[in-house]
Amino acid sequence: MTERPGQPGVCVSTADSHHNYTEREHHAGRDVWLSRKGAISARRGQAGLIPGSMGTASYVVAGLGNEAALLSAPHGAGRSHSRNAARRLFTRSDLEQRMGGIAWGHSDAFLDEHPDAYKPIDQVMADAADLVEVRHTLRQVVNVKGD
C-alpha cells in the first residue's frame, strides 16, 4: 500500500488480477506453459482480487504460494447457471429484492448477472483457504453494466 500524495492517511494499492491467460513458468523442476482459465496467480504475498456476484462480497487477497495448485487460486465465484439459463430462471422483481441497498441499472440487462446465477462466494473462499489469505472484504455499493 502506498499513501496518496497530498492526502495523508489515505492509502491505495493495486492488484493485477487478470485471468484466462497463458504464461511461461517453472514448476516441478521444469519450464512449462501454464494456462490459467478462471484462475489468478497466487504466488506467496501476491495481491489479487476474487469477486463474488454483483450482490455479494468480493475479496482482496494475498497468495499463499501453494505449489500443488501451481501457485493459482480461483478468479471468482463462477457461474452455477449460464447467462441464458439465468435470463429464463430469474425475474426482475426477484433481482430487485436481491439487490436491496445496492445501486444498479434496474434493467433486464442485469438478469444474467443475478446473484443466484453464481456459486456462493463464501464457499469458494472456504475452498480456497489453502491458496489465499483474505486481506479485505469489499461490499458492493453500485453495479454498472452496458445495455
Rank of each mutant, 00 (worst) to 15 (best):
Q123V: 10
Q140A: 15
H26A: 13
A126V: 03
V60M: 14
L95S: 03
S82F: 01
S72V: 03
I40D: 00
A126C: 14
S58G: 08
G146C: 05
M1A: 15
R139L: 14
R87P: 01
I121T: 04
R83L: 05
A15V: 01
V134F: 07
D94C: 06
H75S: 12
T14F: 11
A62I: 06
A85K: 14
R44L: 14
A28N: 14
A128T: 01
S80W: 09
T14H: 15
V132K: 09
P5Y: 14
T22P: 08
C11L: 13
E3K: 09
A39R: 10
H27L: 15
H136I: 05
R79S: 02
L138Q: 10
R88V: 02
H26K: 13
G65T: 01
V10P: 04
A77T: 01
G100R: 13
H19F: 12
S13W: 14
A28M: 06
A62Y: 07
Q7S: 14
Q97I: 10
E67M: 08
V61N: 06
Q46W: 01
V144N: 10
A47I: 08
Q123M: 11
H18S: 13
S35N: 15
G9I: 04
G63F: 01
R24H: 12
I102N: 08
L95T: 00
H114V: 02
L34D: 02
R24D: 08
A117H: 02
G101L: 07
W33H: 15
D130M: 07
G45D: 07
F110W: 05
S17W: 04
P74W: 05
G76L: 04
M99V: 00
D122Y: 10
D127P: 12
A77V: 00
I40F: 06
Q97V: 09
V132T: 03
R139V: 09
G78H: 08
A69R: 15
Q97W: 06
T2M: 12
L64P: 04
S17G: 09
I121H: 06
A62S: 15
H114C: 06
G52D: 00
L131I: 02
L89Q: 09
G63L: 04
G105C: 11
D147E: 13
M54D: 00
R4D: 13
H106D: 09
W104Y: 11
Q140T: 10
C11E: 14
